[in-house]
Design a protein around this nucleic acid. Structure first.
Lengths: 209, 209
DNA sequence: CACATTAGTGAACACTTGTACACATCAGTA
DNA sequence: TACTGATGTGTACAAGTGTTCACTAATGTG
């Protein structure tokens, strides 16, 4: 009687992960979420939590995995849409920001996790960033856009690029999602950061200290 | 009888702030700390908390203020010790990293707060960073090290520098404090990031697209 | 000295929390 | 068809939570 008709498998699991994301999206910090709170938000009884996760850290880890998918999707879109090399930066930043807007909670979770409580989540996110940076380096190599740089220097450059963009998250996520003016400002500033870095990269070997 | 001899004023306040920092230093996230937990760590009865702080956010805000002092002290030391322009980056990064080592909990709090739960703390830390960046810009102007850059471009450059260094916090704070090798790696990488940025700044106007 | 203020204490409150247990339902398989 | 494992539910409990209250001792000021 109190039993509703059986949901498809994994549905509750997803509900729980979405619930955690929703709470994060509302401004809560992941580290301060409790099991009961999440299950409440998911509309599920507390005990169900343990059917899918050991504890909150475990849930966090699985969120990192999903975050990886989101990032890969973004990368794919960027590769498909960034055609002319001269618009590379602006387009990429645009795609990043629109993804951050459309997956606000996910990116909030990412920003939080970088200095979060769970070492494992922290490492997971850092690892995603490393992967992202190495893919970026590959793309630039393929496009012959950085032929004068050694592999190590190109890696470093891409690392710095990814970090700068990631830091912009803290800019985007504090402004309200509707504030298009501020969003434009962040977009412009981020793009200029990247331009500055690439100018540096372009002259790197000619003045390597 | 249960009353110990009266401590000097503000002592408990300090004990509470230190207790929070200690817990953060042990790996806890500030957002997950509770009033009782902090008072317990401070060796003080829970009610005492309210004599000094409204709630945990309030304590966080006051920690930001202290963080500001730490940063200013660091800045002063950097200004006093960085003599030759050619060693500017390496020396500054060194000073930063040694401060991060000696005030680990403080800098952990800073890294956490950037994407923390309290909007006010977040804004406080961002404001400290802006101040830091503007002071850096002033120093560079004074040293005539960036004469070819417009004020806005110099500000942007310093902003990027400060962000990059701040991001390095997440590198330093995950490695154990005794691991000197890894610390050296972070130091080297951070320094190269800054070099790359300054090379970019040096060639900025000559290729501003 | 008298007195208001400040900064500490302990007891009590109504909730919330994580977790354990026993039980119910469904899906797939032998 | 009967069994089994996975996934859901409800109840229960001990421990921990934020906050209020009334009380006490030391401090600074008139």
């Amino acid at each position: 009687m109190a039993e509703r008709k059986r949901p498809k498998p994994g549905e509750t699991r997803e509900k729980l992960m979405n619930a955690a994301l929703t709470l994060v999206g509302k401004g809560r910090h992941f580290a301060s979420l409790g099991i009961r709170e999440v299950t409440r938000q998911a509309g599920v009884v507390p005990t169900s939590f343990y059917r899918h996760f050991r504890n909150m850290d475990d849930l966090g880890l699985q969120l990192v995995d999903e975050l990886g998918l989101v990032l890969r999707r973004m990368m794919r879109e960027a590769r498909a849409n960034v055609l002319q090399a001269d618009k590379l930066i602006d387009e990429s930043v645009g795609i990043f920001i629109s993804h951050a807007r459309n997956n606000r909670s996910f990116f909030m979770f990412m920003a939080q996790g970088l200095a979060g409580e769970s070492r494992a989540v922290q490492e997971g996110i850092r690892s995603e960033m490393r992967y992202f940076a190495s893919e970026l380096a590959n793309d630039l190599r393929r496009l012959k856009l950085a032929d004068h740089l050694s592999d190590a220097d190109l890696d470093m450059t891409c690392d710095l690029v990814v970090r700068s963009v990631a830091f912009s998250l803290t800019d985007i996520l504090v402004i309200s999602p509707e504030d298009e003016y501020q969003e434009g400002q962040v977009r412009k500033r981020t793009a200029r950061f990247l331009q500055l870095i690439f100018v540096g990269a372009a002259h790197w070997n000619s003045r390597p200290e």
